[in-house]
């Protein structure tokens, strides 16, 4: 008998987050077996009926095996589809390939668009994600996309952990200015911007600071920290310009490559990331990393989507723990 209740599925990419969301929702994680054959083909078997249920598939993308995680997600969605789920919502806190969202060079693939098409082809009816690199990615889908913001959680963390009046919000690049101004407005703080000349992806060349950071705690805000090159250089720049200390707050802490070494050597006092991407091991390797739990936001989005309530409330407010 279908209960039309929430069925939360997760793959191997980020079981901790799924557990937190499930606890918050008060449901058990649906039994599912995600295995790999000897030739690394992924096999998915769903252990309980999802017929006529509201299925949420939560899968983040752990750095390193993004494609495996992606295939797991697609196969899980497809398995639910063939198992006659009523609605399949993909909860992808960190949308993969979000940075390949435009044809910036000749014959460059718009992979984010491909991902959107793949998700829809697999049978996805709804997508919940967080802090998309470019909001235009929502337009790649023909299904509704809820792009949640980590900003409310971030604001709360700043209020809780820092002296707000001593802070200044710094955007490490022009693209993030909007995000930074939004947070600065929310905290009624000043705002500075670092202009950078980027030669190639993941490489940062020269940086110019616009704005005043003198004797303040510079909060560097970005949507993702991958190799941390940008953040470390930005920290150098703000310290050079007389900032008291530098704190970075990013939504997606991918921290790939030698990000940890770079962090340990950098002038960043703290790096605050949300738990959209698993980073427990890295946290042990680098004491400066701190975590904001955004599972309440995701859980609330799932609940509201399931109950047909408005999600826009979550854009400005973070649910209390």
């Amino acid at each position: 008998m279908a209960t039309n209740s929430i069925k939360l599925l997760t793959g191997n990419s980020h079981p901790q987050l799924a557990k937190l969301v499930a606890d918050r929702l008060g449901v058990e994680l649906t039994k599912i077996m995600v295995l790999q054959y000897s030739n690394q083909e992924t096999s998915v078997t769903i252990g309980e009926s999802v017929r006529d249920e509201d299925v949420f598939v939560l899968q983040s993308t752990a750095p390193g095996d993004i494609n495996d995680g992606l295939m797991e997600l697609l196969i899980m969605i497809n398995a639910c589809k063939t198992a006659s789920a009523r609605r399949i919502t993909a909860v992808i806190p960190n949308f993969p390939y979000a940075r390949q969202d435009k044809k910036d060079k000749s014959r460059a693939p718009i992979t984010a668009k491909l991902m959107a098409n793949m998700l829809q082809t697999a049978g996805c009816n709804h997508v919940i994600t967080m802090d998309l690199h470019a909001s235009q990615i929502q337009g790649f889908f023909n299904v509704p996309v809820d792009n949640l913001y980590a900003e409310p959680s971030t604001l709360r963390w700043i209020k809780d952990h820092l002296k707000v009046e001593d802070c200044v919000i710094v955007s490490p690049d022009a693209g993030g200015a909007k995000r930074a101004t939004s947070i600065a407005d929310g905290l009624d703080l000043g705002f500075a911007l670092i202009h950078k000349e980027r030669a190639r992806p993941n490489e940062v060349s020269r940086m110019v600071l616009v704005g005043d950071v003198k004797d303040r705690i510079a909060i560097i805000v970005d949507d993702m920290a991958d190799t941390c090159g940008t953040l470390c250089k930005a920290a150098d720049v703000v310290i050079q310009h007389g900032a008291k200390s530098a704190v970075a707050i990013v939504t997606h802490g991918i921290l790939s490559g030698n990000a940890i070494e770079a962090l340990n050597k950098s002038k960043l006092e703290r790096l605050v990331v949300t738990n959209t991407v698993p980073h427990e091991a890295k946290k042990e390797a680098c004491a400066r990393i701190e975590t904001i739990d955004i599972s309440p936001t995701l859980a609330e989005a799932c609940r509201r989507t399931h109950n047909g309530e408005s999600v826009s409330f979550l854009f400005k407010h973070a649910p209390m723990d």
């Binding site: 690394q40 752990a62 993004i66 494609n67 993969p96 460059a108 991958d226 790939s256 490559g257």
Partner: peptide, 30 residues
């Protein structure tokens, strides 16, 4: 990319050409 994302750059013009892409499986199927 360092985070594991696949990057593809087609370095020759393919406009109005027949393109064949040969890809078998391997130990990293996904």
């Amino acid at each position: 990319f360092s985070n594991g994302e696949t990057s593809v750059q087609i370095q020759t013009s393919i406009r109005e050409q027949d393109v064949f892409i040969v890809q078998s499986g391997s130990s990293k199927t996904n």
